[in-house]
Nucleic acid binder design. Structure first.
Lengths: 350, 350
DNA sequence: ATGAAAGCGCTAACAC
DNA sequence: GTGTTAGCGCTTTCAT
């Protein structure tokens, strides 16, 4: 595994081997067609003979702008951001860029560093999925540095940058109507961890839609930062004291917790209680009952964001766009109409 | 969001602003201490005044070798590789490299392309997690190109490159002994999808250990490429016909399937049947019963591989190392000793 | 249709 | 201590 480095052929080597100038080789490489056929052959031969492969970084150094797009995500380990990164990678390649992926590890300080680095690298554009939209450390720095880019996912609309997210509010309103339509009049919203703007929207949109569409619906909210165990306790108390007929879980993790607490208490889902969760996962199709979920359109999110970025890189001066992609409700076994048993209890209670 | 690009200060701007030469500024930036205090101040002032930030790519162009480490993983969406990438990123930064992450999307062709690209970029070293160890397209090309690097995860030992993986065989043997110790004499191994070397090891090591440690153990194997539904059917047949007392699931996904099939059939876990899966996941702690798992030491895997790479980059000429990290068995509720009921059936059967 | 020359931003000898 | 010079590998006018 010795370093056989240092002897790579350069464009000049190719040129002299082919008996032409470096400029001609460069033109050949970029598909300029006005080259004598004889020279084309000689150049091809030289490239083959010397096993020449161009150095994209050197090329970028000469050009004003690098053929690199930077992506900053909060977390490399979650499936959501993994899928997002994966899609961006595919899109970037297709446009002739390469994607430089970095994770801020949910740290605003590191996010800031990464923005600086993308700027140092003179990337063509930067896609930022902020740690949290609220303070926007990285976002602010991008403005100061005059960088081209777009914001994704946990974003507020912005005056300078295009923002592309997922319509948390609309999805929650739909969940509300759907549950109401099949008879549910008492729903528990279940959340965990630090509350981002996205999550606040999930709650408030549900509540507002209920007010408008089904005012008699009782809505309870459990939203703890106390961790899994604390949530389990609080959920357990609620299930014992005043069980709702449906639970709308705001995170993947809380969906899991709800499911396991139902089982522990012998609540049959969906007969005794329905469950729907925000954010889909593979395992939800395979549990028994299969779990209903709000599916985030990761690919469309990526596609929109990327299209927008490319437009900017091509010089679009349109006012900053603020776009939300629609989620899809996938109803699986865990959601059903309220049953006779639930109905009876309800009538008894009123 | 106009491109305010093109006007970035270069090291020469700083130099002239400070009244020194570019070389001096460069030295200052690299912490060379033999610079007149007065000049240090002037340089600092100039950097501040011009908001100068160096271009690491230009620097790397001049140096023989870039301060970049390439990482090629099969998949950006799985938690396992996500965690691996995340860890490598942290380690690389700590050593002053930046990590360039790319996904081969489980395609050998793309893996090959990515190896070529890493070479084109003249990265200092490349960490390759191959799509499959068997044919080793990317690995072969790395040799041909004389690249520095290490192989991770789905690897055979190699004569030229260090290989770092996880000890699938040892973990499986442990699972076998553990199940045997608590009385299980009929175990079903459950797998899905294309069978890689890792998976073959999981099966054969279990079988061999049984032969040595508990020859009377009956081992059935269901290993289908027919997809989830096919697996469900086959598993169902087995559970009806000749139910084992324990299932050792070879993948995360099959663990989920096993769990849901148990439930559908009213099998109580672990009373009627025990379950342990290869590869841990968050959701396994939170199901009811919580699922036992073979935990892969992702961080240690990354740490070992990275240490080895750094050693190579620093010129180590030791013979290629082949290292396996040990997994850990985490026993949760889903595994228990065989119960009286199972015992009775067993005696009746013999 | 091709080449000479200049330079992207930086570093590394070596001279002073 | 510091500056000069030469160039990393490539692209790009601008002549020819």
């Amino acid at each position: 595994m010795a370093s056989k480095a240092g002897n790579r052929a350069s464009i000049h080597d190719v040129a002299s081997h082919a008996g032409v100038s470096a400029a001609t080789v460069s033109k050949f490489l970029h598909g300029v067609s006005t080259i004598k056929a004889a020279n084309v052959e000689k150049i091809k031969a030289a490239i083959l003979a010397l096993d020449y492969r161009p150095d994209p970084l050197a090329a970028d150094l000469r050009r004003a702008r690098r053929n690199i797009i930077g992506l900053i995500i909060p977390d490399l380990q979650s499936e959501f951001f993994g899928a997002l990164a994966s899609r961006f990678e595919t899109l970037a390649e297709k446009e002739g860029y390469s994607l430089s992926i970095a994770s801020s590890h949910e740290s605003e300080d590191r996010e800031l560093e990464l923005v600086e680095r993308m700027s140092s690298w003179r990337v063509a554009g930067t896609i930022l999925a902020p740690v949290r939209s609220e303070r926007g450390t990285g976002a602010g720095r991008m403005k100061e540095l005059g960088m081209d880019g777009v914001f994704v996912d946990r974003v507020n609309s912005d005056t300078e940058y295009d923002t592309i997210g997922v319509d948390n509010a609309k999805a929650s309103a739909e969940v509300c109507r759907m549950l109401s339509n099949i008879g549910h009049r008492h729903v528990l919203l279940l959340g965990l961890g630090q509350v981002s703007k996205n999550v606040r929207l999930r709650v408030s949109a549900f509540q507002q839609e209920a007010l408008r569409f089904c005012p008699e619906m009782q809505i309870d909210v459990i939203l703890t930062t106390g961790g899994v165990d604390d949530l389990r306790v609080k959920l357990g108390e609620q299930l014992d004291r005043e069980p709702p007929t449906a639970v709308y879980s705001l995170f993947q993790k809380t969906t899991l917790i709800a499911l396991s607490e139902f089982r522990r208490r012998g609540l049959s889902c969906p007969k005794d209680i329905s469950l729907i969760g925000f954010d889909d996962a593979d395992w939800m199709q395979v549990t028994y009952p299969a779990v209903s979920a709000v599916v985030q359109p990761v690919e469309r999110l990526a596609d929109s964001a990327f299209a927008q970025l490319i437009a900017r890189l091509n010089g679009s001066k349109d006012p900053a766009l603020s776009h939300l992609e629609n989620c899809e409700l996938v109803i699986r076994e865990s959601v059903g109409p309220i049953s006779r048993r639930q109905g009876v209890e309800r009538w008894a209670a009123t």
